[in-house]
Amino acid sequence: MQLVLCAVAKMNLATILNRHKTMTRPPKKNNSLNNYAKYSSIAFQMIAIVAIGSFVGVKIDDHFGNENNLWTIILSLCSTILAVIFVIRRIIADSKGNN
């Protein structure tokens, strides 16, 4: 008899604690404007990274007098790869934060 009462008491305590946890969580806001602002800022940051890398490459090529624009090509490619990695990391971090 005591074993049954103990099991019922534990079950009731567990349900009460679960209800308390769900009641104390703040409601999730599904605001599409916030998502739009977040992802458009990521796009502007990606554009800025690529533009800065390309600009530095052009300036280095002008300084050294390279006719093949080797530094522009290298730094443009590296900054594009860096920007893509940055975007992927931000999206992964945002998806983990939403769960």
Rank of each mutant, 00 (worst) to 15 (best):
residue 1 M to C: 07
residue 1 M to P: 07
residue 2 Q to A: 13
residue 2 Q to N: 09
residue 6 C to K: 01
residue 8 V to R: 03
residue 12 N to C: 11
residue 12 N to S: 12
residue 12 N to F: 14
residue 12 N to P: 02
residue 14 A to L: 13
residue 19 R to G: 13
residue 21 K to C: 11
residue 22 T to R: 01
residue 22 T to E: 01
residue 23 M to C: 12
residue 24 T to D: 15
residue 25 R to K: 06
residue 27 P to A: 15
residue 28 K to W: 10
residue 29 K to C: 15
residue 29 K to S: 15
residue 30 N to P: 05
residue 31 N to T: 06
residue 33 L to W: 14
residue 34 N to F: 14
residue 35 N to R: 04
residue 36 Y to I: 08
residue 36 Y to L: 15
residue 37 A to M: 13
residue 37 A to Y: 14
residue 39 Y to I: 06
residue 41 S to G: 08
residue 41 S to V: 12
residue 42 I to Y: 14
residue 44 F to I: 13
residue 47 I to D: 05
residue 48 A to G: 05
residue 48 A to S: 07
residue 49 I to Y: 03
residue 51 A to D: 02
residue 53 G to Y: 03
residue 55 F to W: 08
residue 55 F to D: 05
residue 56 V to Y: 06
residue 60 I to W: 06
residue 61 D to W: 02
residue 64 F to S: 04
residue 69 N to A: 11
residue 71 W to I: 03
residue 72 T to K: 12
residue 72 T to M: 15
residue 72 T to L: 15
residue 75 L to F: 09
residue 77 L to V: 15
residue 82 L to S: 10
residue 82 L to Q: 07
residue 83 A to W: 04
residue 83 A to H: 02
residue 83 A to T: 00
residue 84 V to E: 07
residue 84 V to L: 12
residue 87 V to Y: 06
residue 87 V to H: 01
residue 99 N to D: 09
residue 99 N to F: 08
